[in-house]
Design a protein around this nucleic acid. Structure first.
Lengths: 129, 129
DNA sequence: CTGGATCCTAAGGGATACTG
DNA sequence: CAGTATCCCTTAGGATCCAG
């Protein structure tokens, strides 16, 4: 019982950093985008589109804008034709990667246990019928 | 350029542990619930309802079921009237807390920078008009 | 007290077509 | 190439009422 993990955060509606960040971490494409940029360094729009499997053009645009607004990545635009835009993680963005990796490692390490639990759970409810 | 963070995970649709776990981490109430249970140990339904500010009865039920199905918490029911049900993190659930805390710490540490970035971003687009 | 069952809306997000 | 603009469907999730 360590207590106090969530100090005064519990009752905050808006300015709870946990909710806020978890919100961003949780959305479908943001963290995948961050990881891709961390893996490959600087990437252009279409390179990201190719790397992040399944993302739509629209969502890539939205995701990139949000991450840029949060200061996690930098957008460098070359005013030429055809256009060329490069995205790179900022220092702030890079700093997110290690915490993300601990989560990633946890996921890899415990996924078997979770899958097993899910099947067990499924069989239980099934057996009851 | 560390490469290979996302090894062969990029193109997987379903069995990508990152997507799967991030999906759970990202939903509105799961991690808050886990943290509450980590903070307080064993809790009853209504205690959780009181602690997690703003959660609806329905979502608490859904969240608890999902977490139970994933093997992250254990549900102990006392067949009495009125009913009494206790929820406790499993070992697996407890193991999620440290990775979660690194994320929480990151959030606390960098929230000012993110807020600043958001305001800067807002002012930029404003200045353009 | 601990939920289950419904209803309903707001947001997330895909597909497609168009543009500088 | 790098988006923007629409349309539309699906899902998350709140409110409410009911039940053992």
């Amino acid at each position: 019982m360590k207590k106090e993990i969530l100090r005064k955060c519990e009752n905050d509606r808006d300015d709870c950093p946990v909710k806020d960040v978890l919100n961003r971490v949780g959305d479908k494409w943001s963290m995948l985008t961050v990881i891709m940029l961390s893996d490959h360094g600087t990437l252009r729009f279409n390179e990201l589109h190719g790397l992040i499997d399944g993302i739509s053009q629209r969502m890539l645009t939205v995701t990139l804008k949000t991450l840029e607004a949060d200061g996690l990545l930098e957008r460098k635009m070359y005013p030429q034709i055809p256009p060329k835009v490069e995205y790179t993680l900022t220092t702030l963005g890079e700093s997110l990667v290690p915490p993300l990796m601990t989560l990633y490692d946890w996921a890899n390490a415990h996924m078997p246990a979770i899958k097993a639990a899910r099947e067990r759970y499924g069989r239980v409810t099934l057996a009851a019928s």
